[in-house]
């Protein structure tokens, strides 16, 4: 790693000032992505702004009115283990649990995961399925944006220089909401996802009131299967309907071929896994 200057602000304001002073300065969170890139000289920042000592960026709050607020610097392990997350968003706990290994989860932050925007990630798809938003701050103010639009493409977000993700906000789930996250690996159990499928299903009796299906790790950003979601609204999710939604999911994605699978294979997997997730959610309903 090349030498760099490390700034250690204690307040969010100080951090934002530092970032405003130097457009090239990089925020440092858990470092699990950044340090790897720097070690391989793929990134050579001259100045890092360490976010770990800023209390305002830490912690998880839950209220049944406003939902979940996860400070951007919360580690993935903390999210996975947090009682409110496990109670109200078990699938988010699962999507965090399946990230990497326990050592990485103890370091990696949720904000870092989203800001880094690596397409082979687990939490983003689930968070989008849950309608999560990100809160962003810079010296010139604060804005909020749905995660869905925040992620622009591989390694690209709407973050401007000087901006920080401060919180991840997840609205409270409607009563009886079903949710699932399914990570599929093609190689070692420890691998990053080849495909991840996130489902969030709101019910009215046995019919679907609203559905979100998001496919992660396949295209450069998580893909919402909007057509499939619309098909489901107001209907009972029969196996035939589920098959149809799964078909829409397969045509909605534009898979990236890599060492984990070819585009054709990934497309096929998307269909299978979306069907399985939906069947799983529905079975859960009837059970």
């Amino acid at each position: 790693m090349q030498p760099f200057e490390l700034l250690q602000p204690r307040t969010l304001e100080d951090a934002l000032d530092r970032l405003a002073d130097d457009e090239e300065a990089r925020p440092l969170a858990g470092g699990t992505a950044l340090v790897v890139l720097m070690k391989h000289a793929l990134l050579r920042p001259e100045r890092l702004v360490n976010l770990k000592r800023i209390p305002a960026l830490q912690g998880i709050d839950w209220s049944s009115e406003t939902g979940l607020r996860i400070g951007a610097l919360t580690t993935i392990r903390e999210v996975e283990q947090h009682q409110a997350v496990r109670t109200w968003f078990p699938a988010l706990a699962e999507a965090c649990h399946v990230v990497a290994n326990v050592r990485i989860r103890n370091l990696a932050t949720l904000g870092g995961n989203l800001a880094h925007a690596d397409y082979q990630s687990d939490p983003p798809a689930m968070l989008i399925a849950l309608g999560a938003r990100v809160r962003i701050r810079s010296v010139s103010g604060e804005r909020e944006e749905p995660l869905e639009t925040f992620l622009v493409s591989g390694y690209q977000t709407t973050l401007e220089p000087g901006e920080l993700v401060t919180d991840i906000l997840v609205p409270p789930p409607t009563a009886g909401r079903r949710m699932q996250y399914l990570k599929f690996t093609t190689r070692s159990a420890e691998d990053r996802p080849c495909v991840g499928v996130a489902v969030s299903l709101g019910l009215e009796g046995t019919a679907c009131r609203d559905l979100r299906v998001v496919v992660g790790a396949v295209s450069s950003t998580p893909v919402r299967v909007a057509e499939g979601e619309e098909l489901a609204t107001g209907k009972v999710l029969t196996p035939d309907l589920i098959d149809e939604i799964a078909g829409r999911a397969a045509s909605a994605v534009d898979p990236i071929g890599d060492v984990r699978g070819s585009p054709e294979y990934k497309r096929r997997l998307v269909q299978v896994l979306v069907r399985r997730s939906l069947l799983g959610s529905v079975t859960e309903v009837s059970a």
Binding site: V36, R187, S188, A189, E190, D191, R192, V259
Partner: peptide, 9 residues
């Protein structure tokens, strides 16, 4: 990161 080897799982 891209070459997996058998783990406990």
């Amino acid at each position: 990161l891209d070459y997996g080897m058998p783990s406990l799982e």
